[in-house]
Nucleic acid binder design. Sequence first.
DNA 1: AATGAATGAGGGTTCATTCAT
DNA 2: TATGAATGAACCCTCATTCAT
Lengths: 215, 215, 215, 215
Amino acid sequence: MSLPEAHVTEPRRSASARSRAETRRRLIQAGTALFARGGLHGVTSTQIARRAGVATGTFYLHFRDKQELFHAIVFEALADLRARQERAGAPHASGSLAELRARTEELLAFAEDNRDLIRVLFGRGGESATVGEEVLDEIVPGIERALERRRAEGVAPEDVHPAVAAQALAALLVRVIAWWIDHPEQATRQEVVATILRMHPSQLGRTGRPGSPAG
Amino acid sequence: MSLPEAHVTEPRRSASARSRAETRRRLIQAGTALFARGGLHGVTSTQIARRAGVATGTFYLHFRDKQELFHAIVFEALADLRARQERAGAPHASGSLAELRARTEELLAFAEDNRDLIRVLFGRGGESATVGEEVLDEIVPGIERALERRRAEGVAPEDVHPAVAAQALAALLVRVIAWWIDHPEQATRQEVVATILRMHPSQLGRTGRPGSPAG
Amino acid sequence: MSLPEAHVTEPRRSASARSRAETRRRLIQAGTALFARGGLHGVTSTQIARRAGVATGTFYLHFRDKQELFHAIVFEALADLRARQERAGAPHASGSLAELRARTEELLAFAEDNRDLIRVLFGRGGESATVGEEVLDEIVPGIERALERRRAEGVAPEDVHPAVAAQALAALLVRVIAWWIDHPEQATRQEVVATILRMHPSQLGRTGRPGSPAG
Amino acid sequence: MSLPEAHVTEPRRSASARSRAETRRRLIQAGTALFARGGLHGVTSTQIARRAGVATGTFYLHFRDKQELFHAIVFEALADLRARQERAGAPHASGSLAELRARTEELLAFAEDNRDLIRVLFGRGGESATVGEEVLDEIVPGIERALERRRAEGVAPEDVHPAVAAQALAALLVRVIAWWIDHPEQATRQEVVATILRMHPSQLGRTGRPGSPAG
DNA sequence: AATGAATGAGGGTTCATTCAT
DNA sequence: TATGAATGAACCCTCATTCAT
């Protein structure tokens, strides 16, 4: 429903809105890059603003404080990650090894596309602090329910406790990815994928090599 | 340092050294408790000193700065952990499942004996920062070499990459323990142990239940 | 009675529908309401603009700065007060007790009609600052000259110093009114009027009750 | 029970306590002088610290914030004023005109001894804000009770409402004093005293000149 | 060895005011 | 005239660390 007055003011609004959104985007980008190096406490709001090309005060026009920028960085990236995971898994049968492999590979691709972000959250010297935990809290329940389903289907072993395994898997993925991003020479992408799939709780019952194309 | 004078002053030192060691112990204890709640940046040296029952200046007679206290807390605990792991594994055949189980159970026991410490390093709101990473760097190489041996022996699957799996295992252990310490009602000790053993890279080749006595 | 921070923000009309005078009026109204709560330093120009239903920049199209708005609020009200005092005293003989009573009652009525304004100038937490002083400087000389006349006429006692009494009277009126506006249950209007008349410097020579109709 | 060690540490404690008290005293003095010119909002904590000859941080070692210093200035002075009023009234019969005169003269003397303080609280450009009000709240109830007694004794007229008159008197005193401190040439001390006594609610019933020795 | 008052650089945050649209 | 995003100087306050006692 477009009101006449909305029609009149829209060009102006959308113009300033575009500018506002652009400034916000730059602050997020600057924050990601700087947090990756210095962590939440190692970076000042003034540094972030300067890198974004705006004045210090502008920072607070867009975020209540540093913590909120941190939060925004993380959860906007998480939404992106989820969308990409969804797309990656879509072509495959739900719960299949093929789907799992596709999602794992997509996860590595995402990490490569967002190195700074990964470092912010889980990397060296990073102080993911509360936010890192919030991310795990966002991720873990989904994993846990999936594992419960797999176990009910008899695919996953009975003695793998879903809640425990969910914590384990989340931490495992996060750490392996953060490590590999910084040490890509230590293992090929295939090796990383294969090892993750091997250790994946839903695959523990399998005897064959999940890494094989026929898996 | 001139040894002769050390020799002369030693009797006097041992008297005051006892008191000095006691003060240091109390600072470490106070630091552990407070860091567990507020992280490295959420606690001031004055707070630590007050909780230890000493003056602010005394803090700096024992530690160069807060970071050093943090470091001391971690590495003294780590030394203790290593000793306990050693003792736990000693009665069993090297590389055996029995040894692995004993060490895992001892790890849980250690965590229960050092809840605050676990929280400092890996828990909610903790900002393990650089030190947490140092701990992993201390732990991971040992795990990696063990996994290499196991793979060479043909026990672990070939497609499990030792370096990757070492990162995965370290993160898995740390996270599961930190989580379980704060949510003991969500899984029994047995379930935690069983799940860890199941996911343990060195056990991935096994088909049976590693939790069973015959495993 | 003015509600607390209730969002009485007036519905926004299209810019063209608002005259400049109307916008100014709304800014003064919004400023009065907000200054009454937070004082000059406790309110931002953006808050005033928002409450007036205009953009921040619009504020500065009407007032050079916050101080000027404050000034405008006060002196427009003061002009209003003067006009009302003039009207209230007109029917009575100049210098008569009847005139004084009529003016005093009108003063209370004005205060009741402009509670927020009274609070801005003289009320709790108010930081009347320079402007409050300016108001007294406006009021006091008139009082002083009137007292001089009364003393010359032999009505007021000789030992009441006009300049001192003028300061005293101005402060007395301001304070009693500001207090009564916020504590109307503590004294009736009649009691307030009677007490003011009793203490009024021009009445100090009287022996009877100035509160009596025959006074 | 005085322990030996208490004996040892006492000199040290009292030494540092003396230094601490001295610093605090200097901050209060500096704050009084600066607040008198700039009001609460016109002075920075750094300015106060500099004038007191200490570092900025030291300010916050003694006062939580500027407001607290303001509060301390006022209430320590108020305690002093009360003691002096007590002493001034003591030689005279309670409720007598002589006592009232002595107290009034002492009040002027106090104001002359504490010009800056008077300006802080009630003077030009001062933003006594909440604290000024607190002072009145401290003073007014005592005045009110005294007036009630005087009225019950038949000394004060019935139509002078105690609560109203108490507000009036407090404001009157404060304003006359603040004004006279800055304009001593406009009225002699005797004239100020005489006018205050004339307007004093407890003296309104008198017909003679309260200023005369026989009053 | 212990004390604790003092230091002061620096960070987070605010907000009066401007200006391009 | 109105808009509202942007500015950036200025301020409050913290706290790691020092040092005289």
